[in-house]
Every structure is written in structure tokens, then in C-alpha cells.
């Protein structure tokens, strides 16, 4: 059961990583990148690294997304 969850999460992670690179809309890419970070945090937790999971959830899904959105609001939205 745990292994199945792991495989599903990793497949979703790879799909997210490819989608970030493919998306032309930069705001959408940033939101997909936030979900990538959230999945990565769950994966760190499953790998028994709760310390890194905490940091990834706070930095990757929170602060990095906000900083990227701040940069997009100062420049163009479309690539």
C-alpha cells in the first residue's frame, strides 16, 4: 500500500516537472511548481526526513511561489 502511494507520488512529480517546463503561461507554471514542491515535501516525509519536509513545505511551496508571483507582477505574464 505504501509502495503504491510512493509510485503514484513519483509519477505525479515527474508529470509536474515536465508540465512546468512545457507551460507557456508563467503564472500557471508557478502554481504547478508549488504543487511540485508540496508533493516533494510528502516524499521527503515518506523517506523519513521530516526536517527537510518541513523546510520544503515552507520554502518551496510558500516563499518561493510568492517571490515568483512578485517577479511576474513586475514583468510579463506570457512567455
Amino acid at each position: 500500500m505504501m509502495q503504491l502511494l510512493n509510485v503514484i507520488l513519483v509519477i505525479f512529480l515527474v508529470v509536474c516537472a515536465i508540465a512546468v517546463e512545457r507551460t507557456k503561461d508563467l503564472l500557471g507554471a508557478v502554481i504547478i511548481f508549488g504543487s511540485y514542491s508540496l508533493i516533494m515535501a510528502v516524499l521527503w516525509l515518506l523517506l523519513r526526513a521530516p526536517d527537510i519536509a518541513l523546510t520544503e513545505a515552507a520554502i518551496g511551496a510558500g516563499v518561493t511561489t510568492i517571490l515568483f508571483i512578485g517577479v511576474i507582477s513586475r514583468t510579463r505574464r506570457m512567455e
Binding site: P50, D51, T55, A58, I59, V63, I66
Partner: peptide, 14 residues
Amino acid sequence: SPGGGFSGGAILGA
């Protein structure tokens, strides 16, 4: 416990 200065500081800043 897990966590520390960096994680907690990031949450405070967020």
C-alpha cells in the same frame, strides 16, 4: 524535534 532555526524562521517570515 525535527525543525530548527531555518524551518521555523521561514514559517515566521511567511
